[in-house]
């Protein structure tokens, strides 16, 4: 069985540059609908976090979809909205053995679920832990984090997360 065709980069007709080929970890590969998630990746290239917003139900939606989950609001009513990029660690695992060989150079590293202040959760790596913090598994749920943007190739920018000190309460979803 095969699922999808290699995703957004291929669809957009981009060619792998020398620099791109030196990045040996997986790039985002949209298997469901590359068109729908394109604004997300366009946003990360500008070092901005953009998420679909379902105005009818006043909630954010992630990953990008053609209908909003739970209420099936149609795509034309889902508005791409720039969000704060701040949130909290919901949970995490410290990876010692990755399914993808290229990541095994980096072990152990943090693979976390981040709860954005806007409500949705995203997967990502939390950066900046010391070796001692990693060894002792010192990261805790609710740790405040902020998105940072990693231009891993000329075509792709991944969202990662750094620990921050702000203790602002989570902002409610915007009514605006």
């Amino acid at each position: 069985m095969t699922y999808g065709d290699g995703g957004g980069a291929k669809k957009a007709g981009k060619k792998a540059s020398a620099e791109e080929s030196s990045y040996n970890k997986p790039l985002p590969r949209a298997t469901l609908n590359p068109e729908v998630s394109k604004p997300f990746w366009d946003g990360t290239k500008k070092h901005e976090l953009w998420i679909q917003y379902d105005r009818r139900n006043n909630k954010f939606v992630f990953p990008p979809r053609e209908v909003s989950p739970g209420d099936l609001t149609p795509m034309d009513e889902l508005e791409w909205t720039k969000v704060s990029g701040k949130g909290r660690v919901y949970s995490y695992t410290m990876v010692y053995q990755s399914v993808i060989p290229a990541f095994n150079e980096d072990v152990p590293y943090v693979n976390a679920t981040i709860q954005l202040d806007e409500g949705v959760r995203m997967t990502g790596n939390v950066l900046g832990l010391t070796e001692k913090q990693k060894t002792n598994h010192e990261l805790r749920s609710n740790q405040r984090v902020e998105a940072v943007f990693d231009d891993v190739t000329p075509d792709w920018t991944l969202v990662k997360w750094q620990i921050i000190d702000d203790e602002e309460p989570p902002a409610p979803p915007s009514k605006e």
Partner: peptide, 28 residues
């Protein structure tokens, strides 16, 4: 399986199969 994983999870180096998610459940 078909889904969002290859786009929004794999770039961040998950552990094999379901290990990743259950690690997070365990930690929480």
């Amino acid at each position: 399986f078909p889904g969002h994983g290859s786009e929004f999870d794999f770039p961040y180096g998950p552990a094999a199969g379901a290990n990743n998610g259950y690690g997070q459940i365990y930690q929480r």
